[in-house]
């Protein structure tokens, strides 16, 4: 028997680092932009001498950071505004698909210019699945760190929750959120969607002097993740995650197991933040292409494939004990 080893493309292994870079960049931008806004308002007031000492410090810091890139503070810093919920990026406006959907329900009408801003994210989601959840979402950044906190707590001997619920609860949350939006005539899904909350609350805290009501909700979700279910909010309750799951159901880029390389070590199942089952080819529409399983696989048995659906369970990995025993048994018969 010829055992031809299939090596996955070497970069896939490092995508997880790139993902963390992306998450950190997004989060850093969410902190930077409010400061940039405050800096702009100082500039607009034309009164550097009247600023308090702390404000002068902020002004000088921002000047040092931004002066290599911009000429006109008031105009040039307008290029990037907003957050991941809805933002302006060099003249192009991008919005979360959930914002567009929520607005359709709240206004019971279609406002095309705004819906078009959600077009690019929708196309990306159809191609890459829940990539937003793993690669951009500022709440994911905190939730994944929160998972590490849970690991430390467990190492210290404390109990953290790891219950499992029905994954379909989040579709119910999405439906209820949209119906409530339609009843009240206000986009209420924005109030229960962590990335929108995080972006807003950071802005409130920096530019308006204090966290708002949303931060309480966010802390509750953190505690829920810590004490009830690992990444529980994203997996079971997030309305945006539900929408992305539906849109990304037939995503083209998926992670897939190379059964010939797999040795059944189950590290992929342990690392998967979303509690999926890469070991038995169980990815489904929940996978957010975070590539943590690819990064941790010791035998390079996971790779990206261009496919419209997951393969059915391919059985135990060919490097594992189970497969060898099965083969021995078959050989005897």
């Amino acid at each position: 028997m010829t055992s031809k080893t299939i090596k996955p493309f070497f970069l896939w292994k490092h995508l997880n680092k790139l993902r963390w870079l992306s998450l950190c960049t997004v989060f850093a931008m969410l902190i930077f932009l409010p400061y940039a806004h405050v800096y702009q308002t100082f500039e607009a007031a034309h009164a550097y001498d009247l600023l308090a000492d702390s404000e002068k410090q902020l002004y000088d810091t921002m000047e040092a950071i931004t002066s290599p890139f911009i000429n006109d503070i008031e105009k040039d810093l307008d290029a990037i505004k907003g957050n991941t919920w809805s933002g302006t990026f060099f003249g192009y406006q991008l919005s979360d698909p959930l914002a567009a959907l929520g607005q359709i329900f709240a206004g019971r009408s279609f406002y095309l210019p705004f819906l078009l801003t959600a077009l690019v994210p929708v196309i990306f989601t159809i191609v890459f699945g829940r990539f937003f959840c793993g690669w951009i979402c500022p709440a994911t950044f905190i939730y994944e760190l929160n998972t590490n906190v849970a690991a430390w707590l467990r190492r210290a001997g404390l109990k953290t929750g790891n219950r499992r619920f029905d994954l379909r609860i989040k579709y119910l949350v999405l439906a209820i959120g949209l119906v409530l939006s339609a009843i009240t005539g206000s986009v209420l899904v924005a109030g229960i969607y962590p990335p929108a909350i995080v972006g807003r609350e950071i802005y409130y805290a920096i530019a308006l002097g204090g966290f708002g009501a949303g931060s309480v909700f966010f802390v509750i979700t953190l505690l829920f993740d810590l004490l009830v279910a690992r990444r529980g909010f994203c997996r079971y309750l997030c309305p945006g995650g539900a929408l992305y799951s539906l849109l990304g159901r037939f995503r083209i880029f998926r992670i897939q197991r190379i059964v010939e390389n797999c040795n059944d070590c189950a590290k992929c199942n342990a690392i998967c933040e979303f509690g999926l089952d890469p070991l038995r080819d169980g990815f489904g529409q929940e996978c957010n292409n975070c590539t943590a399983c690819i990064a941790i696989c010791p035998t390079d048995a996971l790779t990206f494939k261009v496919r419209l659906s997951d393969v059915p369970n391919m059985g135990p990995g060919h490097l594992g004990k189970l497969y060898r025993r099965d083969k021995k048994d078959n050989g005897k018969q």
């Binding site: 409010p34 307008d78 907003g82 919920w85 809805s86 607005q103 005539g185 986009v187 109030g191």
Partner: peptide
């Protein structure tokens, strides 16, 4: 109210 998506960009643009 039915249009606003609570994104906070207006405040971020206000000089």
């Amino acid at each position: 109210l039915s249009r606003c998506i609570h994104c906070g960009q207006c405040g971020e643009a206000c000089p």
